[in-house]
Write a protein that binds this DNA or RNA. Sequence first.
DNA 1: TCTCCAGAGTTGTCCAGGACAAACATGGAA
DNA 2: TTCCATGTTTGTCCTGGACAACTCTGGAGA
Lengths: 305, 305
Amino acid sequence: MTTLPSMNISAVERDTGLGKDTLRVWERRYGFPQPARNDNGERVYPAEQVDRLRQMKRLIDQGHRPGRLVAASDEEFAQLCSAATSGGRNETAAGEASLIARMIALVKANDVPALRQALNQAMMRMGLQRFVIDVVAPLNDAVGEAWMTGEFQVFEEHLYTEQIKSLLRQAIGNLPTGGGPRVLLTTPPDEQHVLGLLMVEALLGLDGATCISLGTQTPLVDIQRATAAHAADIVAVSLSAAFSGRQVRPLLSQLRAMLPATVELWVGGAGAQPMPAQSGIVSLPTLQAALDALESWRKSRANGD
Amino acid sequence: MTTLPSMNISAVERDTGLGKDTLRVWERRYGFPQPARNDNGERVYPAEQVDRLRQMKRLIDQGHRPGRLVAASDEEFAQLCSAATSGGRNETAAGEASLIARMIALVKANDVPALRQALNQAMMRMGLQRFVIDVVAPLNDAVGEAWMTGEFQVFEEHLYTEQIKSLLRQAIGNLPTGGGPRVLLTTPPDEQHVLGLLMVEALLGLDGATCISLGTQTPLVDIQRATAAHAADIVAVSLSAAFSGRQVRPLLSQLRAMLPATVELWVGGAGAQPMPAQSGIVSLPTLQAALDALESWRKSRANGD
DNA sequence: TCTCCAGAGTTGTCCAGGACAAACATGGAA
DNA sequence: TTCCATGTTTGTCCTGGACAACTCTGGAGA
């Protein structure tokens, strides 16, 4: 109980998402992190530095650069953390701001039954579509920010995520069987976040599309195979901000090249950068954009395209 | 469409679960894998070798050793793959063998609606408890084996997993609110498999326990914090066979030391090795054992322990 | 003033080859 | 047979170097 937890380099890699090579090269170049060494000469990272690394990773995902972050003073750093999500993509609808604040408080209080009830109630009142767009999406952002500023523990974020997952799956299960386009939903390898997928599945299913979800981390070859096996009209992949920006472009190009031209490729989530128009890749910066894209697909098909 | 997919060392690490260092050292020691090199001298692994590596990883998780596997001929190797799960932990109840074979066929046929219906029907007929123990568990083994012998594509396994997850979550959501012990459910970092967790949650919830699931990959410190925050009586972690055997013992010891002595620590799944009796760790090799452990916990509490 | 581009700086990932602790197997003694 | 000592196997860590891809900066030209 009294051992302050310190981690070896593998554990830090898992916990922060920063590769072993990156951790070593940062130490060499910037002098941070500066782990102790055990008897065998291996790096041993104190918990404090691991926390800092986690925050740095998050800031880097948002476009900051490591060289600047290590040079920043503690005050500057804290300021960056707070300011991080202020440019949030999901504007909180004015009417729901207090609802979201209340739910955040319930997570903080670890009151699962009350949280579940509040979520359920909101969903009933607003309907699934508005609930997903106006509550779940901004709530995700809020939880992410709370985690960032140290207000939330990891386990609280986990608990929150579980509740949302459970709720959305329940809702999706109760949707009538769809017609419309057949949409294959998944994320590429290395992308573990499933919430975006579930939100899209709920919205599209609600609008009458047939969603086939493969869950997370499907190898590209298998996305290709599944598209053929299920005669999908659309492949939709979700990328979180944690998905390193530099790999996005080549990965999507590769996937696009592997799919038949008649199949649309949609990319959503915080990691979805604007795409060149002729790339054959549809970028969906918001959930609303996914609904629009669905409508536009239907129109183009109706016109015999 | 014509490019045969070949991968760099990072991609292979993701796909196979073998670390970069391991891949390089195997090449040095055993001469396998033997990737080509690109213009920059970097390894480029052909898809064929990656498939082989995936199978080797699985066999190693089951206790085989790399040195033997690379020395084995193709016939010996194929035989090992088939024989792999024959010592399966979840004996298929005689009456349900054909049901399971039928479901495997449905997955193979990519017929999601029929699969869903068959699963639902079986669950209704058998009740949740027997369904989980006699159908879901052996079905998981069967899917794993089918994947191993190359009968299933990765995306088919993904699709199957999604359906089971959805079904179990639905069932769990419909359970009445529990009393009994408060059980915290999760997996440690690096363990991504959630199915075992859901099966246990269904069984324990059905038996009246209160389950608090944190999902997968909770850092040990956060398991500790969540245990306190939710006043859990029992912490249950699930380890799949993919969880490397050598890390299990120290990880569980560390976790055990971090929890109050009054909290029981249960370990289930294929990665759960028998534990020394005085270690304070309860090993649950089967799902039935979890139910027994619950009963035994209740008895010991009733006796004023 | 704005736009564009070349050069300098930054950053993540790869490489080679060495080392070592922990896990495993093997064979002989009790 | 059971048990233990000894040799072998295996995964992971280390150092220090390299380089391609990306970002920033300042100056030339419209």
